[in-house]
Design a protein around this nucleic acid. Structure first.
Lengths: 335, 335
DNA sequence: AGAGTCGACGATAACGTTGTCAGGAAGGGA
DNA sequence: TCCCTTCCTGACAACGTTATCGTCGACTCT
């Protein structure tokens, strides 16, 4: 900036005024300064600028995901990016792989860079450590899962309702023994989906058989083993509710390797790529990650714009998509 | 920091020393300062810190992708993130959707934030606009595609070789009429894959039939239409080489809807989720996005550490995975 | 013509931090 | 005892930018 001022033969402040399109610069000088900027390929240092501005915003937000390369997470990421781009805001994204420590580290790094706000898909269940941060003015929005012991905006899908609907759907097709595959119960969505499953069974006067409930499944391989175990029970399930993406993929593999993909019903939570071209096509309860991400970002920016109303807890609907695998009756007939 | 110094009853510089673990602070004072930091929940402002440090690094890099939510891009992203995390570096990621303008905007935003380096999957084919930037010290690494008119490090997959191998594979299974589906030829990988296809045909003394070459395919729906058109030709292809992810997915849908998935051979470039559980399973030439991303990040950090040797152009191998769909003979028998 | 007004412009301080340097206490040697 | 060295500590300036405020010239009005 110093060089630009020298080249244009003006004061620093005048360059600053031109860069910020402030009024009160004569057209002649403005043109000279712009030419100098062009010539020197000058770009204002956003960090220094924000340092000086009063209560300056860095035009930067942080996004904590489970894993940037996971399809659900990356769909959220894209939706957040699009909202942010419209406001000239850049996004720091990071993966925490369900490790609470990594969540804290990431948020710490974001804080060091003075991000304006943070959207978190939390890995931990205790967020009291964020209380000070929040009070200091950093906007926090929890996405997909609620915060633990902290009052903050939340945007999540209707996990209980979706799981209830999925289970009722299987019951309506005649199933009485429905296997449940789920992620770690420390993840609140996994817990809520199990809760929905349990509720639906109870509403149909069915007893939840603990042998049919498998949790802590973190990858497709674990799901494959779990399905094989369920199938070798004395009284095996006639349907499976796989309450998470990777469980669904594992279950598909396991059923196919056992040649049972047309015999055992399968209904997954969260849509899977190519689910429609499989045979049978996979029925799912689909979330709308685009909408989740967009809603969270809009909420965050509304807060940044000064909205100080009480915390919002938004629940977005899910949609059951019947494609075939979830409509197999006990005994293996489609219905 | 001012508050911390006041609370601990020391000078600003001493706090700075403790924060940076510089030597020459007595244990007693160090403990007092640490307690004050803890108590006030103080975190150094990384932006201000870097501003003052001579030639300071922001410990931040930029990553320009085609689309953060695309599986290939997000796998790259994750690999870059992992390398960066090991060095305490945060990653700004952005999608440019193959729009050159958006590429420039993103890189401009990164520059405003004074990122230490940028990894680009370029959308444009002319990067002379980056020459000044590069000379000013920003490290640039091009990923998946080479830069245009700029000398910079590049990491890419063996597109020509992979496409040649894929086409030869189909020829070896008896095919003479092989359809080609590809992305916009303005994308250099798409162009290179078409080149590999053409080379393999020529090497087998086959003429490239322009009717069988469909380019500019940007999504599965376009691929579905293209396949339907190819199939209704007077002399339709007996095999398809889909040179990109989304083309492969569209081709799978189109072949299934025509009931031809066991009749027409299909070989895709780049692996697809669930390719192995489809029937027939999809044969592909797989890239290793993890390795691509990791290699690019390592190269970037080596440059940041001061390596000033001439530009490197690294080509990573691809791997043909035969799963069934690519081994169908003309007439529809597996071979 | 003189006083008052207004708009354009730059000097200076400050944002939160670190590099430089000087001051002062403690300890050792003569 | 005095001087010199060594170690610890803080005052001050500076990084690139912007907020504040004062200066200066031109213009208007009587």
């Amino acid at each position: 900036m110093h060089d630009v001022a020298a080249l244009a033969g003006v004061g620093l402040k005048t360059v600053s005024r031109v860069v910020n399109a402030e009024p009160g610069v004569s057209p002649a000088l403005e043109a000279r300064v712009k030419r100098a900027i062009e010539q020197l390929n000058y770009r204002r240092d956003a960090n220094a600028s924000m340092l000086r501005r009063l209560g300056g915003k860095t035009q930067t937000i942080g996004l904590v995901l489970e894993d940037v390369s996971n399809p659900f997470s990356s769909a959220l990421h894209r939706a957040v990016e699009d909202s942010a781009r419209a406001r000239g805001v850049l996004v720091f994204a990071g993966s925490c792989d369900e490790e609470p420590l990594r969540e804290r580290e990431l948020i710490g790094s974001f804080r060091d860079r003075r991000v304006d706000g943070i959207i978190v898909v939390p890995a931990s269940r205790d967020h009291t450590y964020l209380y000070e941060e929040q009070r200091a003015g950093t906007v926090l929005v929890f996405l997909d899962r609620p915060p633990g012991h902290l009052d903050a905006d939340t945007v999540a899908a209707d996990n209980v309702g979706g799981a209830t609907e999925a289970t009722e759907h299987l019951i309506a097709h005649g199933h009485r023994r429905i296997g449940f595959l789920g992620d770690l119960l420390s993840i609140s969505t996994a817990e809520q989906r199990l809760q929905g499953y349990t509720q639906a069974l109870a509403a149909a006067d069915l007893r939840r058989d603990e042998l049919l409930v498998r949790t802590g499944i973190r990858d497709p391989d674990a799901a494959v083993s779990a399905v094989h175990e369920l199938l070798s029970l004395p009284d095996p399930p006639t349907a499976l509710f796989t309450s998470q993406n990777l469980s669904t993929i594992g279950a598909i593999r396991a059923l196919r390797s056992a040649g049972l993909e047309r015999t055992i019903a399968l209904l997954g939570f969260d849509d899977v790529a190519l689910a429609d071209v499989l045979d049978p096509a996979i029925s799912v309860v689909a979330q709308d990650p685009q909408a989740l991400g967009r809603t969270a970002a809009e909420l965050l920016f509304r807060r940044l714009d000064g909205d100080a109303s009480p915390s919002v807890h938004q629940v977005l609907p899910v949609k059951l998509i019947a494609r075939g695998s979830g409509e197999i009756s006990p005994g293996g007939r489609a219905s």
